[in-house]
């Protein structure tokens, strides 16, 4: 339980209950726009930030929800979503 994640439905749980879903890259692009470069970008490229990162997680061994959190990749500590993000994501 080194890593804990707060599921919006089930609350704070051990990180092992969850599955990481990648950096938040925004909605799926239109299929016709997906040139090889753009496809590569959306599918595989990461910023690999050593610091605060907005990312997707799924409560795999729980309710199954996908949700976004902020996490510091240097400490794996989860940090609360800033208010403006909450509003935007709502």
């Amino acid at each position: 339980m080194s890593l804990t994640i707060t599921c919006p439905i089930c609350g704070k749980r051990s990180g092992y209950e969850f599955r990481y879903g990648g950096e938040d890259k925004g909605p799926r692009p239109d299929e016709d726009e997906l040139t090889p470069e753009k496809w590569f970008d959306y599918t595989h490229l990461n910023t690999c930030i050593a610091g605060m990162q907005k990312e997707w997680w799924c409560h795999r061994d729980g309710c199954g929800t996908w949700f976004k959190i902020y996490r510091d990749t240097r400490t794996i500590g989860e940090v609360p979503l800033p208010v403006e993000d909450k509003i935007k994501d709502a």
């Binding site: 890593l3 690999c48 990162q53 990749t73 240097r74 400490t75």
Partner: peptide
Amino acid sequence: DPWPNYTTQ
């Protein structure tokens, strides 16, 4: 652990 991190923990 299958989540990106730089902790070496």
